[in-house]
Amino acid sequence: MASLGQIAEKVRSKNAGPFWLTIDVFCGTPSAYAQVCQGLSTARVARSLGADPGHVKRFEIASLNVVKFSLPRPAVQGAPEDRDMHGASWAALLAELEINAGA
């Protein structure tokens, strides 16, 4: 078992406007890309972020070896319950997920 952060080159989270969060998983190589595509389900991503799986958009972009997830922000940017104005830290939650190496 390895974490997503160990398999991928970089995991980045950003706001996509005040109401959406987007997380880009830069896999780096086709083999890492294949491993992430197969080993990381949208449902698991949603669970780790506390999101409704039906609201998580998933993009698999083979030409860039990137898997991208976009979802309504868990708290609207800047609302009293928001903890992270720029959506900067959410990548860490994904990066620490264990990915089944053999999958």
Partner: peptide
């Protein structure tokens, strides 16, 4: 081509 096309991901909920 990689750095330019990857920029469509940036702060964008839909890369296309």
């Amino acid at each position: 081509p990689h750095t330019v096309s990857a920029h469509m991901l940036y702060e964008n909920s839909d890369p296309f």
